[in-house]
Design a protein around this nucleic acid. Structure first.
Lengths: 242, 242
DNA sequence: CGGTTCTTTGACGAGATTCAATGCCGGTGG
DNA sequence: CCACCGGCATTGAATCTCGTCAAAGAACCG
């Protein structure tokens, strides 16, 4: 069952990683009503201030959440891969407090909120999976506060890349040795609180140190344990979801 | 019913702000078993790596969550006031991924996790309140990523203080005109990704500009709308929980 | 191909850190 | 009662990391 024909399979795979669901739970997930949708790279999926009535699942491609500062600065606060719910929070919060944007061409599945709320309350194991998903997202945000607040530029960029690689691999997308990297250096800067120029300098150093190799749109890690060390990366905060 | 005699009243007040619970819901909350506990200022409440079996409610006083970087840097990722649940996440995640520490002498109420899980599943309106609480926490973390990543030092400190004042007021603790401030300048630096020295300089400027007045352990805002403007503070991300 | 976006590099400047010293305040014990 | 001590606040000077500005080269797209 690939995600083209069964858009919810990526979600089911993730729910199974998060909670010990049974066959009935999976059947209930699979029978969720939904409509699929495509967006081109860089298009917005949710805008700050929106009041969504459906919940958005990222079926295929990459997305990012971002916020804007008053002076026009942009901060990416997380990225997402296939199988991730992009606005679980709107099940319980009225208005979007940030933007969600496609980083590549994406396929989305929009699921009506009432159906999801019912699923959560009628199927406790699925509810637990969603709880865990939301709480792991929060743990990732905390790690990002630390990353942006207290690590130097090189460590910061390396850490963000380690997380991206770890989560992408868990979603079955490429490997440490060769991974699609759907971000420009400007976007890596937006995720790490740096400028594109400085990101470029740090990536050059990481390359010169033999830790990574870069080609357009791709990233290879040549020394994964060395790279994790430079990144001060410890995956505990992902709570084995990746 | 003050919190000394009825430790859970602060939680009930907060739940009522978050979700339209009925009398039975409140009765169920009030009958939650729990044990109260005190900690001195600066003591740890939860340590990274812990596997808690009870959930901790902050009944009285102030607390903060923090993480440590490999180089020994410390990042405070959120602060908490009375009525806040300090480790809701451990209902669904095994291990603590960060520290929770008392900022003042505190009173805590420890509630067994099974009782809380039952409450969430048997009382949907209470469950909704906890969902909203967890999701608002996540929204606050996102705002902190933006704060630390993209705002300059003065704005950053002012923003953190605006949030503290807004949430403290909502919890019934003081007013904009006169608020207890239970953080040293070092701790404000840990929350904003700055050094204590630079925090001091920025606080001096904010004072000289007539926006705030400081006295030991206290903060007065002399020009709330001017202060919010300097802080680029828009409370939308608190989702009316404060 | 021609234009656009992204990457790369250098020179310079600014904001924040580091280091160091002084002052302040509350608590404690002689 | 007061002297001492430790933690916190304050300030200045030197330094450094990262940002800004500018320009050129590489990759991508119609």
């Amino acid at each position: 069952m690939d995600s083209r024909n069964f858009p919810l399979e990526a979600l089911i795979a993730k729910v199974q990683r998060l909670s010990p669901v049974d066959d009935e739970d999976i059947a209930a997930l699979r029978s969720l009503s939904h409509r699929t949708d495509r967006r081109r790279s860089q298009q917005y999926i949710v805008r700050e201030g929106d009041k969504p009535t459906e919940c958005c699942l990222l079926v295929d491609g990459y997305a990012a959440r971002s916020k804007l500062s008053a002076e026009g600065g942009r901060q990416i606060v997380s990225f997402h891969v296939s199988g991730d719910m992009l606005d679980l929070q709107h099940l319980f919060l009225d208005r979007a407090d940030h933007f969600v944007q496609a980083m590549t061409d994406v396929t989305l599945a929009w699921i009506p909120m009432p159906a999801l709320r019912e699923l959560i309350s009628n199927r406790p194991r699925v509810g637990t999976a969603f709880w865990r998903d939301a709480l792991i997202d929060a743990s990732i945000f905390r790690e990002w506060v630390l990353n942006v607040g207290r690590r130097d530029a090189k460590t910061r960029i390396a850490h963000m890349l380690c997380e991206f690689i770890t989560r992408s691999e868990a979603a079955g997308l490429g490997s440490v040795e060769s991974m699609r990297l759907p971000f420009t250096q400007e976007q890596i800067g937006d995720a790490t609180g740096l400028t594109a120029v400085h990101v470029n300098r740090m990536l050059r150093e990481l390359t010169e140190e033999g830790l990574i190799r870069r080609s357009p749109g791709m990233l290879q890690v040549r020394d994964w344990s060395g790279f994790r060390r430079v990144a001060a990366f410890d995956a505990a905060y992902l709570h084995a979801a990746a």
